[in-house]
Write a protein that binds this DNA or RNA. Structure first.
Ligand code: MN
Ligand code: MN
Ligand code: ZN
Ligand code: ZN
Lengths: 136, 136
DNA sequence: ATTCTTCTTTAGAATAATTATAAAAAACTC
DNA sequence: GAGTTTTTTATAATTATTCTAAAGAAGAAT
């Protein structure tokens, strides 16, 4: 089955109508081998470049948020004025190349288990994420 | 020597003229026992509350950036629309209480050494920071 | 297929955080 | 004090993001 059909199925299963805009966005986001880290603006421009079709900026925002809510995208906190998203939704760590402003995935085995020795009463740990900043 | 005199000295040493606005900001930021995590807006409001004197928002931004540049404040990357700053400029980790939107310092001993097993050619590690998100 | 309903897209307006501007005020130098 | 440089401030500009409301597309019912 073509990936387009997969996307349509996935969208339908998520109660999201498979519009051509959403399918194009899926194509840019998920038709790739490696994890993709991006800002909304990156994505907005890539859609034009890769599919030749314009999708309005509002729709890019809407779709990214819809996918985020469904758990198909992850938000990454970075010292930056723009929000980064990640197609790798698993719990994982990152390098951040400060000069290039680029995120690189770290495998969990590249970092090893992290043991948090402190706890706050009434709170439990939701996630543990390491950010390793890189310089030249 | 009063802390005010200390602040004046510190500002002079940093080639920053010790204006009453900057001294008030120092007072709010550095006259406290524990690490202080804040947004610009937090700080803006606290200055009014604690010192009874208004400092313009532009000056708060300017001063925070000046202090950041001098290394007296640290910027903390958080999933939020506002930038967080930290009076603890050492390399350290955080809890982030997602509900309260509050940062809590972790001592390095509470996390233990983190061993990064991967490297990127031509790049070296600048910092390693753990962010532990907390939920109820 | 036609109609009806609901969801989606879109351009543009609105909001909110941050940065830039430029004139007045304050701080230093001599 | 006169002259110079830095700082403050109100306000405008910028930027990322969200909101709005109308037009369009998709799905359901007939
Ligand atoms: Mn989101
Ligand atoms: Mn800064
Ligand atoms: Zn990632
Ligand atoms: Zn801290």
């Amino acid at each position: 089955m073509s990936s387009k059909q997969e996307f349509i199925k996935k969208l339908r299963n998520s109660n999201l109508r498979p519009t051509k805009q959403r399918i194009n966005i899926c194509d840019v986001l998920f038709n790739r081998d490696k994890t993709f880290h991006f800002t909304i603006n990156d994505l907005f421009n890539l859609i034009k470049d890769k599919t030749g079709q314009k999708v309005s900026l509002a729709t890019v925002y809407n779709t990214v948020h819809a996918f985020h809510k469904k758990g198909y995208l992850k938000e990454i906190p970075i010292n930056s004025n723009q929000t980064y998203f990640d197609t790798n939704v698993s719990d994982h760590h990152h390098f951040f190349d400060v000069k290039e402003e680029k995120l690189i995935d770290l495998k969990n085995e590249d970092v090893g288990p992290i043991d948090i020795q402190k706890s706050i009463p009434g709170k439990k740990i939701k996630s543990v994420e390491v950010l390793v900043k890189l310089e030249d």
